[in-house]
Design a protein around this nucleic acid. Sequence first.
DNA 1: CGGGTTTGACCAGCGC
DNA 2: GCGCTGGTCAAACCCG
Length: 277
Amino acid sequence: MPSSVNPSVRPSLERTNALRKLVAAIMESLQGGDDEPHALPGFPYFSVPSPLAVLDAPPTLSPDDNQHGALAALQQACNSLQQLPPLLAPDQLAAAATVAPPSMILPPMVDWSSLLQQAGLMVGSPPVPGLHQQAAAVQQLDQSGENDCGEAAGSSGGGGTGKEKARISGAGRSSSSGRKKVSRPRFAFQTRSANDILDDGYRWRKYGQKAVKNSAHPRSYYRCTHHTCNVKKQVQRLAKDTSIVVTTYEGVHNHPCEKLMEALNPILKQLQFLSQF
DNA sequence: CGGGTTTGACCAGCGC
DNA sequence: GCGCTGGTCAAACCCG
């Protein structure tokens, strides 16, 4: 422990351990690996129970899986920490920073980006069920494609009339010169819910809707609103059982889940600070 | 006013 | 070649 740290902001061992436990529980839950993966029940990023591996398999989901508040459980866990001394205020952290060199305030002891990346919060895994290691939870429809999330989305940056643009972008959208369409990783899963939209923590913009053959319900097309991210998802209801929503993700996010990071940030900052003790 | 949704039109792929 | 279907675009619209 650095001796230059202001003693007035030195946290209790109790608090440090509590925070470590919390983050460990979060990470463990994110990574799955045990029979009871719902360490934080109601947190849909990793608590969607048994999404179906086969799209036309009989539904086994509990009702309204996605009705839970996305971050409720996490916030609840954070609230439980309120019994302990309060979180360090930002100015306290700043005060500590003025005493200890910045390198000691944010020591490289915990590599959060790689940790979160391993946990599937960044590039490389589907948003919801893929966070489990329950392989059956997700159907990977196609993984022959490479991770081309960074590709220029649309790339129809020219002028011209709407029709011209449509033609140009239409041509650019698929194989120019007869090459086969580059497929990207796709993951589909089903959720029994009254809501079409799963709160997966990412922000989506709807860009289209189509009537689907042999189905009374249309299919909706969404794109991730993050500037550099080109992940898409399709949402439609199962024709056989309209209580089931089929969500298909295409591509992988090249950025962390905003909502989750928003919720985790205070904890991570605290823990980074505390990890110097 | 900016960001998101709706919706008709357009395009490519595929089967016949 | 033609028609059907799925995927996307973008103007118009809506909303906070």
